[in-house]
Design a protein around this nucleic acid. Structure first.
Length: 382
RNA sequence: GAGGCAUUGGUGUAGUGGCAGCACAGCAGUUUGUGGCACUGCUAGCACCGGUUCAAAUCCGGUAUGCCUCC
C-alpha cells in the first residue's frame, strides 16, 4: 500500500489523497461502506460498485465464525470469494470485544446519548468483566453468537485470520471500550491495547497487507494523547481511531483534535465507525482520510432514505401518494427509476427489494456527498 | 314459525362477578469499527336497551345481527 497526499487544506487539517493498493486506488477522504460478512447487505458486488463505493470493510470475527478463514483462503482470498476487485479492509474483531461484551450488557453504544443518570454507580469499574466474555492480557474469550461455543481471539489469532482472509488493509486487534467505563478501567485497557498493538506487528508474516494500529483512550485527553503518541511510534502503515467518542459532537471533535496532530502526516488515518452525514465535514476537516459506517446500509434496510433536506422514513403512509423520486437532485439508479410511492409500498409490504433500493440510494448519496467534500478541498474551500 | 349457540379496539382473540389483556394492523420515535428484518412509545374495544348486585364483558330479561337444528 502506498499513500500519497495530493493537497493539504490551508483552512483546516483536511487533506486530499490517494491510497494505492494492489486492487486499485482510493481517493481520500472516503467513506468505507460496511460489508461485515463479505457482502454489502442486500447488494451484489456489481451493485455496490455502482454506488461509487471505492473500498469496503469486512469483519474478522464474523468471517472467522462463518464461513471460516480456511474457506476464504481456499477461494483465493476474500476479493475472489465475494467478487469484489476493488480495495478491501478487515476490522480486527476489536469492536466485537465491546459489542458482544459491555455493549451488550449495558445496551449503550460507543457514543453515549443520555448523560445524566447513567454515570455514577453503574460505571464500569477497573477489573470488571462483561457477562458473556472474558478479557485478559492475552486476548478475549468470546462466546459464539451462533452456537454459544467458546472461542479465543487475541492479537496473534486476529492477524493470522486476517492474513488468511486476504484484505488489502488489516487492523490491529484492540479493545474498543465503553463510554461508561471509568478512567481506571480505561488505563488498564489501554495498556492491553498497546501490548496487543506490538504483538500484532510481530505476528505479521508478510507486508503484502497494510496494517493499521488503533488508538484508544476513551474521552480522556491525556490517555488519547498517550495512545496517539505510542501507536505513532510503531511501524504501522496507517492509523485507526477507535473506542468511545464521548457523548456529543463537540467531544468527538475534541478527541480528534487531541489525537490527529500527534500522528505522522504521511500515513492514512481511519476513523472507526463514524459517519452520519452531518459528521462528515467536521471529521474530514479534523484530518481524517477514511471512515466506515453502518448508517447508510443499516438505515436503508429500516426504510430511512437520506436526501438533500434530511431523511425520509419510507414506512410512513404519506409517501404512498408521493410520485416524486427520493431526491430530485440525485442521479442514482433508484432516483432516476422509482417513485417514493413505490418504495413506500415495498416497505409497507415488507418486500426485500425496498431494502436493496434504499441501500443503493443511501450509499450513492453518501459517496456523492464525500465526493463533493473532496472537490471542496481541491478548490480550497474546506 | 319454534328452539339452540354466538356477538370484546380495524382484524384475530383472552378474560365465569372485583382496575378489559395479548397479537397483528395503524401512528410516531430510536439506530455511528452491524449479534439480518430490531427496539421504544402511542392510538383504538365489551352489539343495543333495561334489570339484579357494593360491584356486570361475565348473571337475568328483551332487541338486533349471524350461524345451526327442527316443523
Amino acid at each position: 500500500m502506498e499513500f500519497k497526499i495530493l493537497k493539504k487544506s490551508k483552512k483546516s487539517r483536511a487533506r486530499l489523497g490517494v491510497l494505492k493498493t494492489s486492487h486499485g486506488e482510493v481517493l481520500t477522504p472516503s467513506l468505507v461502506p460496511v460489508a461485515t460478512r463479505a457482502t454489502v447487505k442486500t447488494l451484489s458486488a456489481d451493485e455496490a460498485k455502482a454506488t461509487k463505493s471505492q473500498i469496503l470493510i469486512s469483519n474478522t470475527f464474523h468471517l472467522h465464525l462463518r464461513p471460516g478463514e480456511k474457506i476464504l483462503k481456499s477461494a483465493g482470498g476474500i476479493h475472489k470469494f465475494m467478487n469484489w476487485d476493488r480495495p478491501l479492509m478487515t476490522d480486527s474483531g476489536g469492536f466485537q470485544v465491546f459489542s458482544l461484551g459491555f455493549g451488550r450488557d449495558t445496551k449503550v453504544g460507543k457514543i453515549l446519548k443520555i448523560f445524566p443518570g447513567v454515570h455514577g454507580e453503574k460505571d464500569i469499574k477497573k477489573n470488571t468483566q462483561p457477562k458473556f466474555l472474558k478479557i485478559t492480557d492475552d486476548g478475549v474469550t468470546f462466546r459464539s453468537p451462533i452456537d454459544g461455543r467458546e472461542l479465543f481471539m487475541g492479537p496473534r489469532e486476529s492477524i493470522k485470520i486476517q492474513e488468511n482472509i486476504g484484505a488489502d488493509i488489516i487492523f490491529a486487534f484492540d479493545e474498543c471500550t465503553s463510554p461508561l467505563a471509568e478512567r481506571a478501567y480505561i488505563v488498564e485497557s489501554l495498556k492491553r491495547t498497546h501490548v496487543w498493538a506490538k504483538a500484532c506487528l510481530k505476528a505479521r508474516k508478510s507486508k503484502n497487507q497494510a496494517l493499521f494500529g488503533i488508538i484508544q483512550g476513551s474521552h480522556f485527553k491525556d490517555l488519547r494523547e498517550e495512545s496517539a503518541g505510542f501507536i505513532n511510534s510503531l511501524p504501522f502503515d496507517g492509523f485507526g481511531i477507535g473506542g468511545d467518542l464521548g457523548s456529543s459532537k463537540e467531544m468527538m471533535r475534541d478527541i480528534l483534535k487531541w489525537t490527529i496532530p500527534r500522528l505522522n502526516e504521511e500515513r492514512p488515518r481511519h476513523l472507526l465507525g463514524i459517519g452520519y452525514l452531518e459528521d462528515m465535514e467536521d471529521v474530514i476537516k479534523s484530518g481524517i482520510d477514511l471512515f466506515d459506517c453502518t448508517v447508510p446500509t443499516h438505515y436503508g434496510r429500516r426504510g430511512i432514505a437520506f436526501v438533500s433536506g434530511g431523511k425520509l422514513n419510507l414506512n410512513q403512509s404519506k409517501y404512498l401518494k408521493d410520485k416524486n423520486p427520493l431526491d430530485k437532485k440525485c442521479i442514482c439508479m433508484v432516483c432516476e427509476t422509482y417513485t417514493r410511492s413505490y418504495l413506500c409500498h415495498l416497505f409497507r409490504a415488507e418486500e426485500i427489494t425496498g431494502m436493496k433500493l434504499l441501500t443503493f440510494h443511501n450509499l450513492y448519496f453518501f459517496n456523492t456527498y464525500v465526493e463533493i467534500l473532496r472537490e471542496k478541498i481541491k478548490k480550497g474551500i474546506l
